[in-house]
Amino acid sequence: MKVPFAAVVTLALDYLFARPTMQHGPGKRGLAWPYYNDGLDPGKLNDHQGTVNLIYDYETYAPPSSNGDGGLAFIGMQRCLDCGSSPIAQLAARQKQLKFSTVFTLNEPDLNGISPGQAADWYKQHINPLAIKKALPAVTSSTDLGKGLNWVQQMVKACNGGCHFDYINLHWYGQDFAQFKAHVNDAHSRFPHNKIVITEFALQNPRGGQADQIKFFKAAFAFLDSASFVEMYFPFVATSPNLFKSHDPSGAAFVGTGSTLYKDDGTISAVGELLLKA
């Protein structure tokens, strides 16, 4: 079929000036979803273009919300050795039921009195058998001896090659982007053959509140998107200021409420809008 020259020119111009689709490192951006979020909708942060496509809720049960997982890929987390909310005996069954293909493990054991050796033995027994992708326990950014990345190195040593894992898992709170970038790069230098996930990060209660958090996240998101060794990241936290203060007052005092992804009316905050930007 012969196409008129004018039509060809129009199609070419449409192609040249077409609005780019929003694609941000498929699989990288996600929501850290607290247990008290029943009334919020994670789907509001799902643009169906893969900009945000992950969610975890610190547990092995489905995310509590007004819209399930909001169409995002759920990642289970066995945050405790064994606890009522996520019994270790039910880990395998819940993984099959909810079909999560990645599991995060132990929440900040370096602050919770769990030794690297104890974690290694527990990991071999309960996490190794899962035929899915696995992350080592999520540690703090503390530089104290026996904590943070030092704790992870001690666990890997205690594993003696017997722990099967895909990801190093980091939490970070601090004063500025330079500190954050240095910490992530430090983790990469210590574990150059492993991918990294950052499952909590934000500035520590900055004086400028949300404005400072936005400035930090703009730089952090760009860095993480460009870092090939970073597999996933989750800014803290996918909730609203009032819910955060009501259910986790110590956490809200430590981080501030300027990094929350929702407003109190359930709509997306300025930080949430930033997470959705290409």
Score class of each variant (00 low, 15 high):
Val197Asn: 01
Val197His: 01
Val197Ala: 02
Ile198Tyr: 07
Ile198Cys: 05
Ile198Gly: 04
Thr199Trp: 01
Thr199Gly: 00
Thr199Met: 03
Glu200Lys: 00
Glu200Cys: 00
Glu200Phe: 02
Glu200Gln: 04
Phe201Asp: 12
Phe201Gly: 11
Phe201Tyr: 15
Phe201Ile: 09
Ala202Leu: 08
Leu203Trp: 01
Leu203Gln: 00
Gln204Leu: 08
Gln204Cys: 04
Gln204Pro: 01
Asn205Ile: 06
Asn205Ala: 03
Asn205Asp: 11
Pro206Lys: 00
Arg207Trp: 05
Gly208Leu: 11
Gly208Phe: 03
Gly209Met: 04
Gly209Trp: 10
Gln210Leu: 01
Gln210Cys: 01
Gln210His: 00
Gln210Ser: 02
Ala211Gly: 02
Asp212Glu: 13
Asp212Ala: 13
Gln213Ile: 07
Ile214Ala: 07
Ile214Asp: 07
Phe216Tyr: 10
Phe216Val: 08
Phe216Arg: 05
Phe217Val: 12
Lys218Ala: 14
Lys218Glu: 15
Lys218Gln: 14
Lys218Pro: 12
Ala219Glu: 12
Ala220Leu: 10
Phe221Thr: 11
Ala222Asn: 15
Ala222Glu: 13
Phe223Thr: 14
Phe223Gly: 10
Phe223Cys: 09
Leu224Trp: 11
Ser226Trp: 05
Ser226Asp: 15
Ser226Pro: 09
Ala227Trp: 10
Ser228Phe: 07
Ser228Val: 08
Ser228Cys: 01
Phe229Leu: 11
Phe229Tyr: 15
Phe229Asn: 13
Phe229Glu: 07
Val230Leu: 08
Val230Phe: 02
Val230Lys: 00
Val230Glu: 03
Glu231Lys: 01
Met232Leu: 07
Met232Cys: 06
Met232Ala: 14
Met232Tyr: 06
Tyr233His: 08
Tyr233Ser: 05
Phe234Gly: 09
Phe234Cys: 09
Phe234Lys: 04
Pro235Ser: 11
Pro235Thr: 07
Pro235Asp: 11
Pro235Met: 14
Pro235Lys: 07
Pro235Gly: 07
Phe236Ile: 05
Phe236Lys: 02
Ala238Pro: 04
Ala238Tyr: 04
Ala238Glu: 05
Thr239Pro: 04
Thr239Gly: 02
Ser240Thr: 09
Ser240Cys: 04
Pro241Tyr: 00
Pro241Ser: 01
Pro241Cys: 01
Pro241Glu: 02
Asn242Cys: 09
Asn242Thr: 15
Asn242Glu: 12
Leu243Lys: 05
Phe244Gly: 06
Phe244His: 13
Lys245Ile: 13
Lys245Met: 13
Lys245Trp: 06
Ser246Cys: 04
Ser246Gly: 12
His247Ala: 12
Asp248Arg: 12
Asp248Val: 14
Pro249Met: 14
Ser250Val: 15
Ser250Asp: 15
Gly251Ile: 09
Gly251Trp: 13
Ala252Val: 09
Ala252Leu: 07
Ala253Met: 14
Ala253Arg: 14
Phe254Gly: 13
Phe254Pro: 12
